[in-house]
Structures are given as C-alpha cells and as structure tokens.
C-alpha cells in the first residue's frame, strides 16, 4: 500500500488542536506507518517553499486547524488547498471560527486600539501599531495583514470534511484518519460527530427543566448525576452536536458548545435562547427579568465557538464609544 501523504497546519488557534494530534500517543506510530507528513509546523521542520514545490493535489489530506484572520493564514490555506486532494477543517476554529471568532463582536480598529493602547498593562505613548511593511536600514520588514473579521476555513477555500471539537477528541481523529486511510470516505461536507445533540447522548438524569435563574460554573459544585441545566447551569447541550464523548459533562462541567450546532440547527445562539427561555418557572414579568439577568453574556456564552458561522456572523455595527467589552452599555 502506498503511504498517505498528510499535511497539518495551524492558523488562528491556540495550538491545542496540534497537541490533540500528538495526544493520540503511541497510535501516532500507526499514523506514521500509514502516512508521510509534508508539513507540520509544530512538530517538523518544513518550509513553505517545500510545499510550493509539490505538484498540485500531491498531498492526500490536509488537516487545517485555526480560523483565518490574516493574510498569511489565507495564503497558506489557498496553497494547501491547491496541493491537497482533501481539505479537512480540523477543530472548532477552522470549522466555525471558534473562540477567535468572538472577535467579530468588534471591528478590527477597536481590536487594535484595545490591544495596543487601552489594556491596563499597555504603555504605548507613541501609539505604535504593527505595520505590514517597514523599511529599516538592513532592508524591508513585513508582517501579515489583519482582516476585518475572523473567517472559518470554508469561507476562504473549499472544505471536504469537518472535524469539530476544542480540541477534537482522539477517537474522532482516529476515526477520520482511518476513514481516509481505508478510502471509506463519507460524502463531502460531512461533519465528523453525531447528528444528535449532546443532550441526546448525555447520561445524566433529566426531570423537569424549571429554574429560577442561572449560575456560573465557579459559583456552585454541581451534583454529579443530575442534568446540569436543571441545576441552573448554562449547558449548551440542547444546541450542540454530540459525538464528543461528553467529556466536559463527565468532568461535571456544562457543555460549552465546541462541536457547533447539529445539521438541523441554523444558529446555536437562537437555539440556546429558546431552550433557556423555556425553562424559567415564574410567570411574573419582574421575576422573569430578574431570573434572566443572571445570564451574564448571552452572545459570548451561546456563540462561544460559532459566532463566525452564526446567522448574523458578528456584530452588525461598530461598538459606540465608551461601550465596555461585550458591547452592552451599562443600564440600557
């Protein structure tokens, strides 16, 4: 059997996805027996020009993790697309924009101002900003340019498969690699994972979902057996694709939604709004309002991983001056 030719790439993400690949531990040897690797910046020393020199379609599968936020990430996404037969969006950032996608609640200028000027730990009296192109006496220095928004990989190039998760669980990675190695490929567009929700596969006991308000994970130690929503914790299980092995729930942590919505859900935030709104036990408007005031940051909580692929894809107009992070003006 000829060996599979693989490439891995890391764009706008934390690096955890690459670590997840390494986490397959001794099974990495099976992968090594199965495959030759042509690019893997975290683990091996290849240069972009090595990839440029390959024939088009030479790489069998490229696992691209991370969202696309700057010109370099787009350039490499396009290069790898050209050189690969199959492109896999690997991890929640490549699939849905992930945590970096939350930056779509702000415009690029707001982000640069915040990072290079406003954070309490920043001292920058000359108002220095990163420049994409700068001449020094030794020559010219360049940096990748910053885009107006965070994009999932599929907004930039065609993607065949999606392996979600923050990071993707090891058994899912192996399943994807095995499917590819044995040529048993699902139809393009397939998201590896279950088509049921996390709730559907959750082992906890569920009774009636009625609460007086919500708590944040640091405020309580939840009971181990009982549905976390029923204990007043915001668990994204009802709006999230299963197949993750319920790792968080088993560790007594509510689901954070990293697998994104199921195929039948258009917008994770809207679904969570529906689920939580239906759970308030009171019928008194003042009490309902007080109960819901315990949801501190709906956009950040419900779209933690999927803002870039949500119906609105991000904030629709700039944050007004004086708006604190989160975009909500106090008292409004």
């Amino acid at each position: 059997m000829t060996k599979l030719k693989l490439a891995f790439y890391w764009a706008a993400s934390c690096g955890g996805c690459d670590v997840a690949v390494l986490d397959i531990n001794e099974k990495i040897l099976d992968v090594a027996a199965l495959a030759d690797i042509y690019l893997w910046p975290i683990a091996m020393d290849f240069k972009y020009k090595d990839v440029q020199a390959l024939d088009d379609g030479f790489i069998d599968v490229c696992f691209y993790n991370g969202a696309v936020r700057n010109t370099e990430q787009r350039e490499i996404a396009e290069l790898l697309r050209q050189k690969s037969k199959v492109m896999v969006a690997f991890g929640s950032c490549a699939c849905f924009g992930g945590i970096p996608g939350l930056a779509n609640l702000y415009g690029p200028q707001e982000i640069l101002d915040r990072v290079y000027q406003e954070t309490p730990s920043t001292v920058n009296p000359e108002r220095v900003r990163p420049e994409t192109n700068w001449k020094v006496k030794e020559g010219r220095l360049t940096l990748p340019g910053f885009f107006s928004a965070v994009y999932p990989l599929s907004d930039i190039v065609q993607v065949e498969y999606y392996v979600p998760g923050c990071p993707p669980p090891v058994d899912l990675i192996l399943r994807a690699v095995q499917a590819i190695a044995t040529g048993k490929l699902p139809p393009p567009g397939t998201v590896f994972g279950s088509d049921k929700t996390v709730c559907d596969t959750c082992p906890r006991k569920k009774e009636e979902k009625k609460v007086k308000g919500f708590k944040r994970p640091h405020e309580v130690i939840p009971e181990a057996e009982k549905c976390l929503l029923e204990q007043g914790l915001i668990c994204l299980g009802p709006a999230t694709r299963g197949g993750c092995g319920a790792r968080c729930i088993e560790a007594n942590m509510p689901c954070r939604g990293c697998f994104g919505p199921t195929d039948r859900v258009l917008d994770q935030g809207a679904k969570m709004t529906a689920a939580l709104g239906g759970m308030i036990s009171s019928r008194n408007e003042t009490e309902v309002r007080a109960a819901l005031a315990t949801i501190v940051d709906p956009a950040g909580t419900f779209y933690r991983f999927t803002l870039s692929t949500s119906l609105l894809k991000g904030r629709v107009r700039p944050v007004e001056k004086g708006c604190p992070p989160g975009g909500i003006v106090a008292g409004s």
């Binding site: 609640l105 935030g269 809207a270 709004t273 529906a274 939580l276 709104g277 239906g278 759970m279 308030i280 309902v288 309002r289 109960a291 819901l292 949801i295 940051d297 709906p298 956009a299 950040g300 419900f302 609105l312 991000g314 904030r315 629709v316 989160g326 975009g327 909500i328 409004s332």
Partner: peptide
C-alpha cells in the same frame, strides 16, 4: 422569557 434573552443578544450583536 425568550424575548428578554433575545433582546440582550440583539443588543450585543
């Protein structure tokens, strides 16, 4: 109750 949450979400968006 849903509209209460939605209003907050819309504002953030």
């Amino acid at each position: 109750a849903r509209a209460e949450i939605l209003e907050q979400l819309l504002e953030q968006m």
